[in-house]
């Protein structure tokens, strides 16, 4: 499904701010994989997503998605097959536009000069009803009026409106209160399952990293430290993860946010 081959990226090369964010990262995902990613701050998790989504071009290596080499494809073209959610719930929708208009943008389809049809509007309402947030009765309201949790749920709906080949979730519940985070996470799980999506999810919550999905990656200093799947992942606890991290890196995991959650 997705194959990364020796991806490297160095920011500000040749200056005092030089930072190698990714070192020779190789990764292969099978269709339907739901992979959780954990790692300390600055480990390269978001940079990895940026490379896959095309926010920048890697210095070396190649990216193949569903049999197509997308290494040099511009971001907006990749976005047709890659859905992405960020930590900031404000980032994924246009606040001055209505819920309906945002969904229409996400749904795409039709010609550039076509209007949103009645049938589509009904479909939007049905999809919104699944969120169980009462948004289906507010389709004409600007998105700016929604709460962070509602906006993130809407963004999730928009990103999966046309089921993408790959879904990238970058700590998409981290900015929400615990109750809403739980709800958005459950929603994520059911949408991923129903659409058989291949999904990469960054999280700082180690227990949900182990509970969700079928595979867990641990990143550090720009490369993948641990790749846990199948039997090796079964029955693993948060303490096991911490121990494995220390054994591999030689120092304890220093992400307070991860330890406290």
């Amino acid at each position: 499904m997705l194959t990364l081959q020796n991806i490297s990226k160095t920011f500000n090369p040749g200056t005092v701010n030089e930072k190698t964010a990714l070192r020779d990262v190789s990764l292969h995902l099978d269709p339907g994989d739901f992979v959780t990613i954990i790692g300390a701050n600055g480990a390269g998790k978001s940079t990895l997503f940026n490379a896959i989504a095309g926010s920048f071009y890697p210095d070396s290596g190649s990216i193949v998605l569903d049999g197509r080499d997308i290494t040099y494809q511009p971001e907006y073209k990749r976005a047709r097959s890659i859905g992405r959610l960020f930590q900031d719930p404000m980032r994924g929708s246009a606040p001055a536009m209505t819920i309906e208009e945002n969904l229409a943008l996400a749904a795409g389809g039709g010609g550039w000069l076509s209007h949103v049809s009645k049938a589509e509007k009904t479909a939007f309402r049905d999809k919104l009803a699944l969120l169980d947030m009462g948004l289906e009765d507010r389709v004409r309201q600007p998105v700016g009026l929604l709460s962070g949790g509602q906006r993130q749920a809407l963004t999730l709906l928009m990103a999966t409106m046309v089921p993408p080949k790959l879904l990238l979730l970058d700590e998409h519940t981290a900015a929400l209160d615990p109750g809403t985070a739980e709800k958005v996470l459950t929603l994520t799980e059911s949408i991923v399952r129903e659409n058989h999506l291949t999904c990469l999810m960054i999280t700082h919550n180690m227990s949900s990293a182990l509970a969700l999905g079928n595979r867990t990656l641990m990143m550090d200093a720009g490369h993948i430290l641990l790749d846990l799947k199948g039997e090796a992942r079964q029955g693993l606890t948060v303490n096991d993860l911490l121990r494995m991290f220390k054994e591999n890196v030689g120092k304890a995991l220093d992400n307070d946010r991860m330890l406290l959650s």
Partner: peptide, 27 residues
């Protein structure tokens, strides 16, 4: 009429949330 077409919506989104547009399929 124009600002309600898909192109019009895309133009409005470009001005309203460039971050969103950058990571969406709108050029």
């Amino acid at each position: 009429l124009f600002l309600r077409t898909r192109l019009g919506l895309a133009i409005r989104a470009t001005g309203n949330n460039p971050d969103m547009v950058r990571s969406s399929s709108i050029n």
